[in-house]
Design a protein around this nucleic acid. Structure first.
Lengths: 198, 198
DNA sequence: TGTGTTTGCATACGGCGCGTATGTCAATCC
DNA sequence: GGATTGACATACGCGCCGTATGCAAACACA
């Protein structure tokens, strides 16, 4: 029993640190977030942090994996309820845009993540998000729905457009007013991939 | 004459600092670039830097304005040589993608810039790049070439897609091999904005 | 022309934050 | 039951940023 207890304690401290890190990174940004404050907020010290995550960038990597997993799960759940694969894909992308309105996602995943860890395609698991999009697009190409372009390239373009749209919407003076415009423009743009114009 | 001399000296030190900053930011990234090293490389000290640019972020702002101006000038030069407005627009976008392959542009404008200064639409002059794209798209909409979507939204999406594509290409194992794929996918995507399918 | 003021930049100082090295205590192993 | 490993805390050094201060040259003005 003691062995299990120990492993659970370990997981618990990791979870506490991840939660504190998410809050600190989201509010202050990666650079301005102090490891001392962050760990103190979790009731720990920097010792625990360096033991569990190696360094500050390691902590960011772990936070990003968490966020990425949450995003892909939510987006897929939305996409699966659609009538056609293409509609599902569009719904999924729109869900991404709306998810990316969350300040936490904005700051950590779209701004600090790339700056600190480099291009997302090089992240651990290259972000489940991009993989999922690539697979979906490839399937749509195979079924003849889309023009036969490179699936990975299209996925990157779509993702970049969607996330950049979210960044723009969130920074706008009236986010709720420009969001529909962004979504409409996105649907229009994405339709360029379709083989048969509607 | 002395007055002119003084102003010219001032401009010269600004230029030297900007050049050193471009090199340092491009090679080490904004966070890892040391102001001491940077100014020493320019034959000056931090005193000159804080006197001319206020702080480290101010220096980055100045560098970004320079890069942005250079990019928009090059892209417009490419676009103006095209046969039709739409072709010119596409060529301009492709030029952006290729310009963004430069490590200097990547690191400073696409990665560190947004992380340090926030969304580009909030930068000084909101980046000439975005303004130019918005105007071009609006003109194409007015002439009936494109679907009547929000020009600013479309510009942001197009820009996001193009720059993200460049980020992806540059991080790829064989940039020269994937660049054409990215461009092809981009043209395909952009055609979604067209009113009459080709 | 001489003096007071401003300007452009260098030097000096204080503080903070990261990473690492070291210490400590409990749990495990043999 | 003593030795060892592992999880975490504590202590230290170093670099870096921002600001306060110093200084010499250029201007203003009478």
């Amino acid at each position: 029993m003691a062995a299990g207890q120990r492993a659970r304690m370990m997981e618990e401290t990791r979870a506490k640190l991840l939660l504190a890190a998410r809050n600190a990174f989201a509010e202050k940004g990666f650079a301005a977030a102090s490891m001392d404050e962050l760990t103190a907020a979790a009731g720990l010290t920097r010792g625990a942090l360096y033991h569990n995550f190696g360094d500050k960038k390691g902590l960011l990597r772990a936070v990003l994996e968490q966020l990425d997993a949450e995003m892909v799960a939510k987006a897929r759940a939305v996409g699966e309820r659609a009538a056609t694969p293409w509609a599902g894909f569009l719904e999924e992308c729109v869900a991404y845009i709306e998810l990316a309105l969350e300040p936490e996602i904005q700051r950590i995943m779209l701004l600090d993540g790339p700056a600190v860890l480099g291009d997302p395609s090089r992240w651990p698991g290259q972000t489940a998000c991009l993989r999922a999009t690539t697979e979906t697009i490839q399937a749509l190409i195979d079924s003849g729905t889309l023009h036969p372009v490179d699936a990975e390239a299209a996925a990157r373009l779509i993702n970049g457009a969607a996330l950049d749209a979210a960044l723009w919407v969130a920074a706008a003076d009236e986010p709720r007013a420009v969001l529909p415009k962004a979504i409409e423009a996105f649907r229009c743009l994405a339709s360029g991939l379709l083989r048969n114009e509607v």
